[in-house]
Amino acid sequence: MRGVPGTRLCLDYETATISYILTLTDEQFLVQDQSPVTPVSTLCAEARETARRLLTHYVKVQGLVISQMLRKSVETRDWLSTLEPRNVRAVMKRVVEDTTAIDVQVGLLYEEGVRKAQSSDSSKRTFSVYSSSRQQGRYAPSYTPSAPMDTNLLSNIQKLFSERIDVFSPVEFNKVSVLTGIIKISLKTLLECVRLRTFGRYGLQQVQVDCHFLQLYLWRFVADEELVHLLLDEVVASAALRCPDPVPMEPSVVEVICERG
């Protein structure tokens, strides 16, 4: 947490401390020398820029920590021969726990920030490979995974949607912005890792369960819940594209597994 207190300290310097120290110095030492000195505005601007850089670095580091967990969990599993899912994988629970801890710690130093109005109760949103209109078209009965042209076209469309998200967008000095940045980095890493694996039917279903679990909890931390929905939709869609037998699990079963988890 060294990065967050450091940014808070620099912001305090900008808003009050620098002016106070300079005024106190003038009064205590009766400074008469009128030679050019660095303006207060310049010092304050430098303090704010330092705070911004520290906070951006903190977001990248925390995003990397969670990303490494997700990457290892994807790369070390045999997704072709995995068993039918009965539980949420432990790594997903750890991601939620770590994100919650960051949320609490950052909240001690920064204001909440602005969130977009929620259009629905996201905690009850049913998540599956059919959770968006794009997936409905992508996995319609007429879709044949063995057709190279269709696969390439759908892959390019998928890439277009996922790359429109600016993962390293500027971080603002509030809790929502910090958590949004960390979650974007983490889920983008998960998406890229899934794109490099091949999944069996049950492997795809495990991804479906894991993503639904993440969606249940992560949406409340970000500025716009659709960001989480979009990225997790793309994770499941990518797994389905990489699956020779893409048969999704029934949404009701997914919900029961996640509630139990």
Rank of each mutant, 00 (worst) to 15 (best):
V4R: 04
V4Q: 04
E14W: 03
T17L: 12
S19M: 15
S19Y: 11
T23H: 14
L24K: 15
Q28S: 13
F29L: 15
V31A: 06
D33K: 13
V40H: 06
S41Q: 04
C44H: 08
A45N: 03
A45W: 03
A47Q: 08
A51L: 09
R53F: 04
L55D: 02
Y58Q: 08
V61K: 04
Q62S: 09
Q62E: 12
G63T: 10
V65G: 03
Q68W: 00
V74E: 06
V74Q: 04
V74T: 12
R77Y: 06
L80W: 07
R94V: 12
E97H: 15
I102K: 03
G107D: 03
G107N: 02
E112R: 06
R115T: 02
K124G: 07
R125Y: 14
R125I: 14
T126K: 08
S128M: 04
S128K: 11
S128P: 06
S128G: 08
Y130M: 14
S131R: 08
G137V: 14
G137P: 04
P141S: 11
T144C: 06
S146P: 02
D150H: 06
L153V: 08
S155G: 11
N156L: 05
I165S: 02
D166N: 05
F168E: 13
V171W: 02
V171S: 01
E172Q: 13
F173I: 01
N174D: 14
N174Y: 09
K175R: 15
K175Y: 06
V178L: 02
I182A: 09
L191N: 02
R195Y: 04
R197Q: 11
R197S: 10
F199Y: 14
G200Q: 14
Y202T: 10
G203V: 09
D210W: 01
W219P: 00
F221Y: 06
V222C: 01
E225V: 15
E226T: 12
L231D: 01
L232N: 03
V235D: 00
V236A: 10
V236K: 03
R242Y: 00
C243P: 03
P244E: 07
V247H: 02
V256N: 03
G261S: 10
